[in-house]
Design a protein around this nucleic acid. Structure first.
Length: 200
DNA sequence: TACGCGATGGCCT
DNA sequence: GGCCATCGCGTAC
């Protein structure tokens, strides 16, 4: 089986995990319908010493509570009153690290994803952006806390090896409020992929 | 192509 | 009450 298991998520280096997730696949099976694709863009958020992270310096609230649990679960939250963003909790309990999935290359269940996005053509607009990924995959706030080793939302390693020099790292999107931490190069993208988001 | 901006709700001060 | 880990539409060239 190629499904990523618990030990993948419970490692301590969220930046490394974020980089490794490029080239992995994410799948959902909502009401029996399989959809998914190859991950081409991620961002790492570290609970310790990262002002851009919702759970930084022990900020433990109703919203962030799940981040303090053991890695391998979903952190989904609402942004701008409209969009849900999907994050993967990593690390051991009490550490509160997470990886945001920002873009995927659609491979599975494309007709269903087109329906969910109200699109007729398959273009990067389908899944290039964190709010668009959740729409296409059918992920919403009710998936907060979902176990990613289960059969609703999961990740797979299909054996593709992405060379280190094919991964671009740069500052994260939309975190200017985080001061110096906004400069951390914790956004990872697959080089030459047309499926990544355009935002700087 | 490149912007400006409104939508919309929950979180946190 | 201000601020978001965003997106898509409109206007202007």
């Amino acid at each position: 089986m190629t499904k990523l298991a618990k030990p993948f998520y419970t490692r301590p280096d969220v930046v490394q995990i974020s980089r490794e997730l490029i080239g992995k696949y994410i799948f959902t099976r909502m009401d029996g319908v399989l959809t998914g694709g190859r991950i081409v863009e991620t961002e790492a958020y570290c609970g310790e010493n990262d002002l851009a992270c919702h759970s930084h310096s022990g900020r433990r609230t109703t919203r962030t509570e799940i981040m303090f649990q053991e890695g391998g679960m979903a952190y989904v939250y609402l942004i701008y009153g409209i969009y849900c963003l999907f994050n993967i909790i990593t690390n051991v309990a009490e550490k509160a690290d997470a990886v945001l999935i920002r873009a995927i290359e659609p491979t599975e269940g494309i007709p269903e994803m087109l329906l969910r996005r109200n699109h007729t053509q398959v273009t990067p607009k389908l899944t290039a952006g964190p709010g668009l990924v959740t729409l296409a995959l059918g992920i919403s706030k009710k998936h907060y806390g979902t176990d990613l080793t289960g059969d609703l939302i999961w990740l797979e390693d299909l054996g593709e090896l992405i060379p280190e020099n094919q991964i671009i790292s740069s500052p994260r999107v939309g975190v200017d409020y985080a001061g110096e931490d906004a400069l951390l190069p914790w956004r990872f993208r697959l080089k030459n992929s047309r499926w990544t988001s355009k935002a700087k």
